[in-house]
Lab assay of single mutants.
Amino acid sequence: TETREFDNEEEARKEAERLRRKGQDVQIRKKGNRWELRRT
């Protein structure tokens, strides 16, 4: 599992969408005042 953190939700969602188009399974969750993007 690979995780990346983003400062805002929009960036996290854009990156998640990009990875999903490549066929990756991605989850986003709020972590304090940041957003965590998890690739499984």
Rank of each mutant, 00 (worst) to 15 (best):
T1V: 13
T1N: 12
T1M: 12
T1R: 09
T1E: 12
T1F: 14
T1I: 13
E2F: 14
E2M: 13
E2H: 12
T3L: 11
T3A: 10
T3D: 08
R4W: 15
E5H: 09
E5I: 14
E5V: 14
E5F: 15
E5P: 03
E5D: 08
E5M: 14
F6K: 00
D7L: 06
D7G: 05
D7A: 08
D7P: 05
D7Q: 06
D7R: 05
N8D: 10
N8A: 04
E9N: 03
E9Y: 15
E9T: 01
E10K: 08
E10R: 07
E10V: 08
E10Y: 10
E11G: 04
A12E: 00
A12W: 00
A12M: 03
A12D: 00
A12Q: 00
A12H: 00
R13E: 11
R13K: 11
R13F: 12
R13Y: 11
R13P: 00
R13M: 13
K14E: 13
K14A: 13
K14Y: 09
K14P: 00
K14V: 10
K14Q: 13
K14W: 09
E15G: 02
E15H: 06
A16Q: 07
A16P: 00
A16T: 02
A16I: 03
E17L: 08
E17F: 06
E17A: 10
R18G: 05
R18H: 08
R18Y: 09
R18P: 01
R18C: 13
L19D: 02
L19Q: 04
L19T: 01
L19R: 04
L19V: 03
R20I: 09
R20E: 04
R20A: 07
R20S: 06
R20N: 05
R20M: 08
R21F: 07
R21C: 13
R21G: 11
K22R: 11
K22Y: 10
K22T: 12
K22L: 15
K22N: 13
G23R: 02
G23L: 01
G23N: 03
G23A: 01
Q24V: 15
Q24R: 05
Q24W: 15
Q24C: 13
D25N: 13
D25H: 13
D25Q: 13
V26K: 00
Q27I: 14
Q27T: 13
Q27E: 14
Q27K: 06
I28Y: 03
I28C: 04
I28A: 03
I28Q: 00
R29L: 14
R29Y: 14
K30C: 08
K30H: 05
K31Y: 06
K31N: 12
G32V: 01
N33M: 06
N33D: 14
N33T: 07
R34W: 04
R34T: 08
R34Y: 08
R34V: 13
R34K: 14
R34I: 14
W35T: 01
W35M: 01
W35H: 02
W35G: 01
E36D: 00
E36W: 04
L37N: 02
L37K: 02
L37Q: 02
L37T: 04
R38Q: 13
R38E: 13
R38A: 12
R38T: 15
R39N: 14
R39H: 15
R39L: 15
R39P: 15
R39Y: 15
T40N: 10
T40V: 14
